[in-house]
């Protein structure tokens, strides 16, 4: 098929094309190997015991998955269960707040004409890439005065203002939320807030699902801010537990449960991603600029 389609230029080009194709697959093969190899070793080592791991490289899974999991969960110096629960709570509530209020904000700017509309939009775009770490000092002190030290809400409530989720939502609305639908709802006597909740939100479901995943993952992976707010010994999240693990003397650790804790932090995200990758990969581009 390829030789025919490049007929005009003759055989030389088709051989060149062939060579380029082989090179492309080779490079992609190496990159895929790099992307998968480390996580494969992680999954395999999480099923081996300490001594098998120290002996060297394990290619195939072992038999100690449940033993390692039990050891990780039972470690008295690492409140792993508490960490998992905290991480799940913070990440899922953050994601809910982020998608609901971002959709609300985006709808406010998309559907209504008001004086500060353009200013508000430009401002959100301006702060979109601003790192949150730069205000960490003021944030930690403010939370301290508000009595939020070592509580979870300081890590959840700020998600109401999520500029990147907002930007994605408003791009989605521009492409697939006709104002006629909103006007029809108004004629039917729906209140403005009711229109948003009952008519607009259901139409945004695909965008909200993708952004829920991104927000969840971002919060699940976040290490810097939680480490400043929470007590690392009694009330950690998973990234804080990883840091605690790293601060210990390696020689004293059971490597099976070390790999298990890393696996608990990483692998659930990979599993969810593989199930939904089609939507996630498609969602990556909607938030960026067009060329």
């Amino acid at each position: 098929m390829t030789t025919q389609s490049v007929k005009p230029q003759g055989r030389g080009v088709s051989a060149g094309l062939h060579a380029r194709r082989i090179l492309a697959y080779a490079v992609l093969g190496v990159l895929c190997f790099l992307c998968l190899f480390f996580f494969y070793v992680l999954a395999v080592n999480a099923t081996h015991n300490h001594y098998e791991i120290l002996k060297g490289f394990n290619l195939l899974p072992g038999a100690d998955f449940s033993k390692n999991l039990a050891a990780t969960l039972a470690d008295s110096s690492l409140p792993v269960l508490r960490g998992i629960v905290n991480s799940l709570l913070i990440a899922s509530l953050s994601a809910l707040l982020a998608i609901y209020f971002s959709a609300l904000t985006a709808y406010g700017i998309y559907a209504y004409d008001f004086k500060l509309k353009n200013l508000a939009f430009t401002f959100i775009i301006l702060i979109m890439s601003m790192p949150t770490q730069i205000s960490a000092l003021g944030f930690v002190r403010l939370i301290g005065r508000m009595g939020g030290t070592n509580r979870l809400w300081p890590l959840i409530l700020p998600s109401i203002a999520s500029p990147t989720v907002f930007y994605f939502m408003i791009q989605y609305m521009k492409s697939s939320l006709p104002m006629e639908i909103v006007e029809a709802a108004r004629i039917d006597g729906c209140s403005e807030f009711g229109t948003f909740n009952r008519v607009v939100l259901p139409l945004l479901k695909p965008a909200m699902a993708v952004q829920a995943i991104f927000s969840f993952v971002a919060s699940w992976n976040n290490y810097f801010t939680p480490a400043l707010i929470l007590d690392s010994k009694s009330n950690p999240t998973l990234p804080i537990l990883i840091a605690t693990l790293r601060s210990k003397d390696v020689a004293s650790l059971d490597m099976g449960s070390v790999y298990m804790l890393i696996a608990v932090a990483i692998l659930p995200v990979i599993v969810v991603y593989l199930l939904l990758s089609k939507f996630i990969v498609a969602g990556v581009t909607l938030g960026g600029v067009k060329g």
Partner: peptide, 8 residues
Amino acid sequence: NLIMASAF
């Protein structure tokens, strides 16, 4: 891209 950087 979705991996927890600290765990990675």
